[in-house]
C-alpha cells in the first residue's frame, strides 16, 4: 500500500477548497489520511492522479465525498443514550413546548433518524416534532431517504432496539424487500433532508435538540470549536446537544455556555446565549 505525507494531504485539501469550497483543511489528520488512502486504493490512483481528476472532472467530487465521509452507523447506537432521550431529555423539552424541532447534523445513511422517528412514535408525539436531517454527502442523503438497510445489519439493530426497551419489535416497522429491510415511509413523514456542510454552511434554523454523534471526531480542535459555535447559535436557550460517548466539549471555548446534563451519554444543555 502506498503512503502519503502531510504535504500531499495539503495539496489535496487545497485543490478541493479552491475549486469546490469544501474545507477539509481542519480535519483530524489520521482518519483523513486513512480515508484518502482508501480512495486512492479504490480508484487505483496516486496522489497526482487524484489531484488531476479533482481538477479536470467536476463530477468526481461527489464520488470523492461519498467515499471520504465515514458512513458506518447503527440504529439505536448506544441504547442507553436512547433511553435517556426518551426518559429525560425529550420529557424535559416537552415541559416547555408541545411542538419542537430536532436536527440530525451529519445524518449519514439515516439509521439515527429512523431510530428517532420510532422513539417519537412510541412516545405518541411523532406528529408534534419537526426533524431536519442534514449531511454533506448527497448520495448518502438519498440512501437515508430510502430508509432501507441490509437484513444482515438488522441483527445488530434489533439487539440495540431490545436494549433500548422499545415497546414493540423492530420488525413491526419494516418489510423485507429483496433481502433488505425497508422501513415504513410514514416514519419519515416529518423529516426534511437537506444537504448541509457543517464547516462551510451557515446557521439556518433554531432547534430544541441537536444530535451530532461521532461526527466532530473527524475534525481537529480548531474546527470542533467553530462547529460548536454554530450549534450554540442553532439552539434555543435550554436546548440540548448530544454528541458521541467518547467525544468531549471541555476543550472548546463555547463549552462554558453549556452544562452537562448526562455525562455518561454526553448530552449537553445550552444555558447561556
Amino acid at each position: 500500500m502506498q503512503d502519503i505525507d502531510i504535504a500531499d494531504l495539503k495539496r489535496i485539501t487545497e485543490v478541493i477548497f479552491q475549486k469546490y469550497r469544501y474545507d477539509f483543511r481542519n480535519y483530524a489528520m489520521s482518519s483523513f489520511k486513512r480515508r484518502v488512502l482508501r480512495i486512492l486504493e479504490l480508484k487505483k490512483l496516486n496522489v497526482d492522479g487524484l489531484i488531476k481528476k479533482l481538477t479536470d472532472n467536476p463530477g468526481f467530487i461527489y464520488e470523492f465525498l461519498d467515499e471520504l465521509t465515514v458512513n458506518v452507523t447503527e440504529m439505536f447506537r448506544d441504547p442507553g443514550f436512547w433511553r435517556i432521550l426518551r426518559e429525560e431529555i425529550i420529557p424535559g423539552i416537552m415541559l416547555n413546548h408541545k411542538q419542537f424541532k430536532i436536527w440530525h447534523a451529519g445524518c449519514s445513511s439515516g439509521e439515527e433518524v429512523v431510530s428517532m422517528a420510532i422513539l417519537l412514535k412510541e412516545m405518541g408525539i411523532h406528529q408534534d416534532v419537526t426533524i431536519i436531517a442534514s449531511d454533506l454527502d448527497t448520495n448518502i442523503i438519498e440512501r437515508a431517504k430510502a430508509a432501507t438497510y441490509s437484513l444482515k445489519s438488522m441483527e445488530l439493530n434489533e439487539k440495540n432496539y431490545i436494549r433500548f426497551q422499545g415497546t414493540k419489535s423492530l420488525k413491526d416497522y419494516y418489510k423485507e424487500e429483496n433481502g433488505n429491510a425497508a422501513f415504513d415511509k410514514n416514519l419519515l413523514m416529518n423529516v426534511s433532508f437537506r444537504k448541509h456542510d457543517l464547516v462551510m454552511g451557515e446557521v439556518f434554523n433554531k432547534f430544541d435538540l441537536i444530535l451530532c454523534r461521532n461526527v466532530m471526531i473527524y475534525f481537529n480542535q480548531t474546527l470542533q470549536n467553530e462547529v460548536l459555535k454554530k450549534f450554540h447559535e442553532s439552539l434555543f436557550r435550554y436546548g440540548y446537544l448530544a454528541i458521541g460517548s467518547k467525544e468531549s466539549l471541555i476543550w472548546c471555548d463555547y463549552a462554558s455556555r453549556f452544562i452537562v446534563v448526562n455525562n455518561e451519554e454526553k448530552v449537553y444543555k445550552k444555558i447561556k446565549d
Binding site: A28, M29, S30, S31, V70, V72, T73, S245, K246
Partner: peptide, 21 residues
C-alpha cells in the same frame, strides 16, 4: 481503546477516535 471506536494517536501527542469500518 474504547469499545466500538478505532483509536489513533495524532501528531501533537493526543488521541483521536473514529467510527470507520
Amino acid at each position: 481503546a474504547p469499545a466500538n471506536y478505532h483509536m489513533s494517536v495524532e501528531l501533537g501527542n493526543y488521541f483521536a477516535m473514529s467510527t470507520e469500518e
